[in-house]
Every structure is written in C-alpha cells, then in structure tokens.
Design a protein around this nucleic acid. Structure first.
Length: 284
DNA sequence: GGCAGTGTTACCTC
DNA sequence: AGAGGTAACACTGC
C-alpha cells in the first residue's frame, strides 16, 4: 500500500481516529518489525502513558509524535494500520497492538513482515536510517527545480532507479515513477544526465502532478484488501501504464510493454518513451 | 510448482 | 569512499 499518496491517506485517516488518544499497553507479536535501539519490552514500556499528539509524514515514512517519544513507521510493501475495539479478535498477520485508554486498539498488520517501526527520543527523528538522506517532499515547494536539474546532471545512473532511491526526491515508488516517466515521455533506462533541460522540467512537473492527483484521489488500491485504513484510494482509474501491459497507450495506441529495470517490473509505451532518439543523446 | 509483488538495505564488487 | 548490482527479508495469489 505504500507510496507517498497511500501513506498520506493513511496519515490523514489515522489522525482523525486516534489523535489525542493515550497508549495504555503495547503487545509485540513479531519483534523484528521493531528496529533501532529500543526493542520489544522497552518499546512497550516506554510507550505506556504516551499520548498521540500528532502524526506527520516524510516521504513514505509516518512520524508518530507521542508525548515523550517519536515513532518512525514504514509500511514497506504491505504494512497496514487499523483501529478496532480491544475485544475484537486479532486478524491474521497482526504483529503490533497499541491499546488505547478508550477501549480501542491501534493495530499494525503486515502480511510480509517487511514493515519497520523505530522509537527515538523526540527531535531525533532524522537520525533514523532512511530519513537521514531523504530528498525533498515532491508535493511541497521544497522540491526545487534547480536542485533537481543539478543532481540529475551529475548522475549517470538510469533515471528510474535513481528516482526510486528517495534521495533526489522522496515518496516515489514503482507505480508513480512509471506514471511520472510516462507522463514526461522519458524512458526509465535513460541515464539521468542525458535528459535535456526541457525533459528535466517536464519530469519535475510530472512527478508533482502525478503525486498531487494521487493524494487527492486517496492513493491507489492495487489488490483489494478488506478495509484496512487508507485502502480506499481511487487513483487506479487514473493510471496510464502501471499494470496496463498490452493495453493501448492512452496517448498513441501502442500496446504498453512490461520490461525489467533494476529488478522492478516497469511499464512503458515504447513509442512515447524512446531510449535513444536524436534529442536524447548525451550532449557532447 | 514457480514466480512476481506498492520497498529498503546489507552485502558484495569495482 | 562512492557507486551500482543483487539477494534477502516473508508470504500470498495467480
């Protein structure tokens, strides 16, 4: 569930449900979800008595602002939160349960157990690996075009894996990077420094547009899960290439092709997104 | 049975 | 040191 728009949708949903609630107990069923220095028993005992003051987001990371601690939470591939009455039986794949003082639970579920939570003292959020080197927020004015141009100019790496690194810009994953590259008509294997200034500008704008629209739509629902928080997105109806293998390109009608780029399934229109054209050869 | 999958990072090698 | 590629994490669904 987890690129920027989905995480933002979860954040907004969670905030409505649990802002101001106090944690009275924590059950950890799969300890490896908890990373960092503060672990299982400490993780639970330190959180008891903490109020959920606010929930923020940076890229694909959720930042829980508790009374005395911050918790960094990354959903990775399939992490989900849900809020249930404490007496409701636990669903399969429930790994962490935060008991709230009002008789409800905040529960974390994760089929693949890839997600991670890290408890850090307030103010130390950005010492967590992943947040230390994270790039600018694409849907705010911190995503500066001049900076974007400068970084791309000095990277020979293919543009898609570069954008997936989270360092040039935060929040893009496999779905939205394919969509943004399609919208900008750029082949995912183009070396970053081979992009013309016009193309970089277009890509910058496409990243912003795609993510903003997806946030407004509440994210993308790929596989239908029983309603866990945030799984109500509708952006899938606006996708152009992701998951559209063999369907006609909405721009030119050419069937969308699926290729492999940096081990990730990658969807392109071979007509609209050329790898080598006269316009895209590296400058001499 | 086999493989792909909304993500990150540890562990190589150059 | 920095860059880039690959495997690993763990499980489900097609």
């Amino acid at each position: 569930m987890p690129e920027l728009p989905e995480v933002e949708t979860v954040r907004q949903g969670l905030l409505k449900l649990v802002k101001g609630s106090t944690i009275i107990g924590v059950d950890v069923y799969w300890d490896r979800i908890i990373s960092g220095e503060i672990h299982s028993e400490d993780f639970a005992s330190q959180l008891i008595g903490n109020r959920i003051i606010d929930i923020n987001r940076r890229g694909k990371y959720l930042l829980f602002n508790f009374s005395h601690w911050s918790m960094i939470s990354h959903l990775r591939m399939e992490g989900k939160y849900e809020v249930s009455e404490t007496n409701e039986p636990l669903k399969k794949h429930t790994h962490i349960v935060f008991h709230l003082s009002d008789g409800r639970d905040l529960r974390y579920l994760d089929v693949r157990k890839f997600g991670r939570m890290t408890l850090v003292p307030k103010g130390e959020e950005f010492t967590v690996a992943g947040l230390k080197t994270i790039g600018p927020e694409p849907i705010s004015e911190t995503f500066d075009l001049t900076f974007f141009k400068k970084i791309l100019k000095q990277k020979s790496r293919a543009i898609k894996p570069l954008l997936l690194e989270q360092k040039v810009v935060a929040g893009l994953g496999n779905i939205y990077v394919d969509e943004a590259l399609f919208e900008a008509e750029i082949h995912p294997l183009r070396p970053a420094h081979s992009l013309r200034p016009k193309e970089v500008e277009q890509l910058h704008q496409s990243i912003i547009d795609v993510l903003r629209k997806a946030v407004l739509a509440g994210g993308t629902t790929i596989r239908s899960y029983k309603h866990a928080l945030g799984k109500v997105g509708n952006f899938q109806v606006e996708l152009h290439v992701y998951g559209k293998t063999n369907e006609p390109c909405t721009n030119c009608g050419t069937p969308i092709k699926k290729i492999k780029v940096a081990q990730r399934g990658t969807h392109i229109c071979t007509n609209c997104q050329k790898l080598t054209t006269k316009n895209s050869l590296p400058r001499s």
